[in-house]
Design a protein around this nucleic acid. Structure first.
Lengths: 179, 179
DNA sequence: AGCGTTTAGTTAGTTTCCTAAATACCAGTT
DNA sequence: AACTGGTATTTAGGAAACTAACTAAACGCT
């Protein structure tokens, strides 16, 4: 180790970026086993959660495109996850009468029951995940992430690296408001 | 919407968790096109970066298991990424003389050249990604993530959900120190 | 020396994500 | 009414991650 000099000059941005990657990887490793106790994956949970919350707001079913927007995954990915959930009898797909192109996805009774079971421990699970941080630190982290996210969102418009992400459309869903 | 009441009571932890998911998704969407300009993926970059930094520290090659530890992905995943890199002539695998089981992976000249090209714009790219945050905010974010990560790491020991992650072993690598 | 256990890596098979392209339908124009 | 352009979803194909199970080599203990 004569080379003590030339050692990795990482910028704060790079360090943060890598820390973020690491956090993600580790969270998935912790969460995935939790979901698998219920026979579903994290992605499947994402869909079910979205459908559940839509339901809570009086929106009994959600179209594939809306799921794609809300979950930040592309429509083909939604299709495959929904396929699997449908095979498991947790959701179902039905054509919309007003527009023959759209497929509305909604929870079955079994699906709703499972969501309730998962939600039961879910909050505690995530609480545990994050309880290495104090309340105020958590607050600060959330704020930073939100700012970061809106920055990333604004970058998304002018990406131009070949594919344009249709970005937006009329997801006039008003998003979820926390009561 | 007579149901104004029962609307989604998300805890700060949950919000943070979801914000984190969102950040990840968006960062990948922005970074992936960057790497693909060089004919590689983000995962491939991860491996090359690790090899590069090892090299900088005088460690010409890295064994698969060490890559797995450093990148936080399982050995089979390392195998497939290295396979692809090897096919592209960017890295090569060679058996260790001291232990016939281990495979040492290292960059080829072409690989090193590519790393230099990628690194050139890499920092700027990440800088852009994160420049929605002020310097101090970035600092705070990094600190929170690091604390969070060590918390998650400590959780990892006592997971017990079926698989134990060998966790640790002699990765007495001292990790990379920033000069 | 020999037998069982552990460790390193790969193979097999599944899931989730992606892009590109196909299909089906809607809507406005001529 | 037919065409053209745009939107919703699926299909096809590929990459990366995982677990489980396998092979090969090393260790270690009697």
């Amino acid at each position: 180790m004569t080379t003590k000099a030339a050692i990795i000059p990482e910028s704060p941005s790079e360090q943060t970026f890598r820390a973020l990657l690491k956090t993600m990887g580790m969270m998935r490793r912790v969460m995935e086993p939790y979901f698998s106790r219920f026979g579903i994956s994290g992605s499947q949970w994402g869909v079910m959660r979205a459908l559940w919350f839509a339901d809570q707001v009086g929106e009994a079913s959600v179209r594939v495109t809306d799921l794609s927007d809300r979950l930040l995954i592309r429509p083909p990915s939604v299709t495959t996850v929904v396929d699997r959930l449908e095979r498991q009898g947790l959701v179902l797909r039905e054509g919309s009468p007003s527009d023959q192109r759209v497929k509305e996805v909604r929870l079955t009774d079994a699906g709703r029951k499972l969501v309730r079971r998962v939600l039961h421990g879910h909050t505690a699970q995530i609480e545990t995940l994050l309880d290495g941080l104090s309340g105020s630190e958590l607050q600060a982290l959330l704020q930073s992430l939100e700012r970061l996210n809106s920055h990333l969102e604004s970058m998304h418009e002018g990406v131009g690296d070949g594919h344009h992400l249709r970005k937006n459309g009329k997801t006039n869903r008003k998003d979820y408001e926390v009561d």
